[in-house]
Design a protein around this nucleic acid. Sequence first.
DNA 1: CAGTGGTCTAGACCACAGC
DNA 2: CTGTGGTCTAGACCACTGC
Lengths: 233, 233
Amino acid sequence: MTSSPVYLRVFEEIKEKINCSELKPGDILPPESALCKQYGASRATVRNGLALLFNEGYIYSIPGKGNFVQSPQSNKYTVYYDEMSNMISSVDDTKLLEVDIISPEEYLANLLQMSKSKNVILIRRLFFNDGEPIAYDVKYLPYVKGMPIVEKEIEQATLPEMLSKDISPFAIKRHIRIQAQIPNEEMKKQLRIKEHLALLVVEQKLFDNDNKPIGYGITYFNGDYIKLEGRSQ
Amino acid sequence: MTSSPVYLRVFEEIKEKINCSELKPGDILPPESALCKQYGASRATVRNGLALLFNEGYIYSIPGKGNFVQSPQSNKYTVYYDEMSNMISSVDDTKLLEVDIISPEEYLANLLQMSKSKNVILIRRLFFNDGEPIAYDVKYLPYVKGMPIVEKEIEQATLPEMLSKDISPFAIKRHIRIQAQIPNEEMKKQLRIKEHLALLVVEQKLFDNDNKPIGYGITYFNGDYIKLEGRSQ
DNA sequence: CAGTGGTCTAGACCACAGC
DNA sequence: CTGTGGTCTAGACCACTGC
């Protein structure tokens, strides 16, 4: 016999009613007072169950009116991405092509929302799997005085990791942009591509809590070596 | 003057301590009883604030031990994808190339985890933007007796929408897989591609609550017309 | 054993919806 | 005005941890 907590029963039974369309998007739930009677529970317990429904996107509430069934977002996915490990083959070796401090050109200064008079750290790398080059990677970090640039640490680091010494990882907001491109001659050479092949290009942009850009990266994956996956919830 | 609820202050002040590394991953929080004293609040109020921290991935708890700071997942992104609307250009017109009921071949029966003796609905479409073909789209749905196939409704529907009449959208689990490919001759013809160009290929797989596949779709986007975006949180 | 978080109760007062 | 959800209190008992 399973005797789960009351608040879990509230959660699961209402969830089931929504799943089987007994309750439809926009419908109002019974008032919390009614649910208290129905489950013979206190209001705190009922609200505990409703909180779970809210967290999983099943309901929302309007103060003074009631709790309502949410319209499902059937276009929302959770994707796990980091340039070092992906679906088909993870990176088992890297090669530092270049580490430099440069003056940003117009487009880069714009991208990082910084003055052109400040400096930027440039990092270019190649990623390998089983001896094959599978990705070409470029990063730009606004240079901050005293920023520790240790080549050994840069070699294997993801973009968030490169910044984790200056800023708590919790305080970093991240964007990615995914697209498909044809390699240019430089890419073909670096990635040793002979035939026609597509690249999966992933841009990363990192921001601090004030939405100031603190890093930009672009990774060009040989299309044969990467698939990104996502799931609902 | 802002006088936010006590539980929000608990949430924000602890979040800030984590963001500025005063509390590091693995660190233990003060016991709830101590937080009650610190904020002059009841345990329910403190736990309300801790629940928010938990929901946003800042902390986890071990019964009998305490609440701990979570290691941040700096590789998790939320992506909004649906085959009809994407970053660069949305679909403003569609063309139904084929709607058919077919016997699945080996690979398809496997993909949909169904018997080869059952039937599958096949839907092939072209998506247009401003008169240009931007995507080629194929869907497979296991045929269920009495399934309503109304061409007018199929034309503009996303994969989840096609199934929403049989199953509540809440009860559908979704997977996507994203990759880059070179178009074959058929694709080039359909999408009127002349030069070299990359395709962004997005597979969708839908499951019911018992993890039984209920639909598969694959969409080949002209790489010039699509960018997918994701953000942390 | 004492201390922790997990669950739960039976109240309370508030701001806000709608009549 | 009554009814709703939002916030909050001051308790309680439990299972679990670590000593």
